[in-house]
Every structure is written in structure tokens, then in C-alpha cells.
Design a protein around this nucleic acid. Structure first.
Lengths: 157, 157
DNA sequence: TAAAAATACTCCATAGGTATTTTAT
DNA sequence: ATAAAATACCTATGGAGTATTTTTA
């Protein structure tokens, strides 16, 4: 199980439609079906109900959803954070993500940022659900919604 | 960037020694070096300092660490949840953890929980170090009680 | 020199593409 | 009849292994 599979699952769980999910992921439908099928096989559980020609999350799928989303969210945060550190070294910092889940950890994040990049002046901003790019639609996520958005931080050495 | 790379990075960050980290991961040293190198290349950042024949986390590596760890933990939780949900939700366990302290034990806990109580749904959430410390001193803080509760639950078998 | 990591290959698993079939509406 | 997902097959990327070569303490 890799992040790829989690992203695939999340897209399908959000669209409940293989074709649209595949399009959103920038891939074809068959490999997406295969990917989800492989994930289900590895988990030993069906995540979607295929009955009625309409996809539905199974109980296991619902259980899987939040944690999978959190995992991807934190992975994206790790990615952005590492790159931010590099940008910082180059003289530019982009703080590109804010989310409900990250917001809970924001104090720690800022402390870490101060420690690793003392010269950075983080600019905080709140984003509404409508401003979310791509993935997560309102009402689907109880815990975390990833918002990818970048703004340049001013006042930066 | 996949979970595999995060796990590799975490092992190396923990051991600060490619050989031992590789052994812990059950793989050879060269592919581990390659994996980390590939991750660094994708991030565009050095995560480790190789000078002095001794590995050290760079600032970017430190910044990367916490989120990478969270991502892997949530992925493991998602995995455990999906598998346990097969029998239908019969319970829920909330497990508080502080990343550094329980990282070693949490996967084992989850695995064991999965074995003994497949119907239980663990919910992971992070707590700051201060919360943990205060909790344990009082002996009744959120995290302490929650962890204790997970032990009890495990004993239900 | 002796360790530790990097490099150079080899092999194979699997991710993703296209074409097609099956299935329900 | 149609739209959607599954299946079949193909190719290629990259992950992991072994062998070997730098490095530096």
C-alpha cells in the first residue's frame, strides 16, 4: 500500500465514479480500477460496493477514508515543508497549505518553522472550502481537507 | 514520493546509519541509499548531511520528519481500520500518541490490536509532548487514560 | 587500514497505457 | 443501446539485489 493507492482511493471515494476519478487523477480508467482492486485485495476488504452500476463506499471504505486522507495530507505537508526549507535557503518561502487537520498542529508547525527557518516570516491565511483546489469536496471529510494553495511570504530575507 | 520512501527516510533518520537502517527495514544497504537519494532528488533538498562519515539530519530533514512520521502512522491506521472493519464496527479505541515516543511501539500495538480485536476501530490523534508529560504526571491526562484504555480493550479478548 | 556510503549493473514487479469485453440500465 | 467498470495484454519505470568502488576517520 502506497500513497498512490490512497490518492486513487480518495479520488474514487470522492467522485464515486471511476471515469471521473481517473480523469481527475490524470490517468485512464482501467489502471485506476486495477489500482483500487489491488488495494482492496491487499486489505482483504472491499472498499466499494459495485452493485447497481453505482459505486458506494462500504463500511470498510468509510473506516478507511479519514485515515487515508490524513496520511496523504501529512505526506503533502512533509513534501511542502521540505521544499519550503529549500526555498528558504534560496531566499523564497511558499507556505502552500492550510487544512483543518494541520490547523490543529499549527502551533507546533510554527515552532518547527522558527527553529529550522528563523528568517522566515510565515503568513497565515484561512481558506474556505470553495477555494480548495481539486480534491476534497465539502461534506465528505469530517476531519481534514487539504487545501493546496501557495502564497509568497513577504518580509523575507 | 511514496510511503516506502517515508518509511525508509524514517528508519535512516532514526538510526543515522544506512547499514543499520537497512537491516531494520529488512533490505540491503545500497537500495536504501538509492531510495533516500531519490527522495532527496524529488524534494530538491538534502535531507541528510553526509559529511564526516556520519549522517546528520539537515534542517530540511528535521522539517520533513514529523509530517513524514504522521503520514506513515495514519497510513498504518487506515490499513488497520479497513481490515478490522470487515466484521463490522464493534468498538472504537482512541489512541493518543506523541510522535517520537510511541513511534516504535504504535505499529506493534496496532498490529496486535488488529489481531486480537479485529472489530475495534482505533482512532489516532497526536498530542504535544507537553500534553503527554503533564498527562503522565497526573496519571489521568487524556493521552495516558486513552492509552490505558487501549490496553484494557486489548485485554477484553 | 577498515568502516560506511555511493556507484554500477541486473532482474523483476507493477504502474499505467490501449483495446476489448462484460454488465446493468 | 448505452454507459460504466472489469478484463486482457503490453511496455517501461523503478525498486531491490549483488558486486564493487570510492571515501574518510
Amino acid at each position: 500500500m502506497e500513497l498512490r493507492h490512497l490518492r486513487h482511493f480518495l479520488a474514487v471515494a470522492d467522485e464515486l465514479h471511476m471515469g471521473r476519478a481517473a480523469e481527475r487523477l490524470g490517468m485512464a480508467q482501467p489502471p485506476l480500477s486495477q489500482s483500487v482492486a489491488r488495494l482492496e485485495k491487499e486489505l482483504g476488504v472491499r472498499l466499494f460496493d459495485r452493485a447497481n452500476r453505482r459505486l458506494t463506499l462500504t463500511r470498510a471504505g468509510v473506516a478507511f477514508l479519514d485515515e487515508a486522507r490524513s496520511s496523504v495530507l501529512h505526506a503533502d505537508a512533509a513534501y511542502a515543508l521540505a521544499r519550503s526549507a529549500e526555498d528558504g535557503a534560496a531566499g523564497e518561502v511558499r507556505i502552500g497549505f492550510v487544512s483543518a487537520a494541520l490547523y490543529e498542529h499549527l502551533p507546533r508547525r510554527l515552532a518547527r518553522l522558527r527553529q529550522t527557518l528563523p528568517a522566515v516570516q510565515p503568513k497565515l491565511f484561512e481558506l474556505s472550502t470553495n477555494e480548495q483546489l481539486g480534491a476534497w469536496r465539502k461534506g465528505r471529510s469530517t476531519s481534514a481537507s487539504l487545501i493546496r494553495r501557495s502564497e509568497q511570504v513577504r518580509g523575507w530575507t
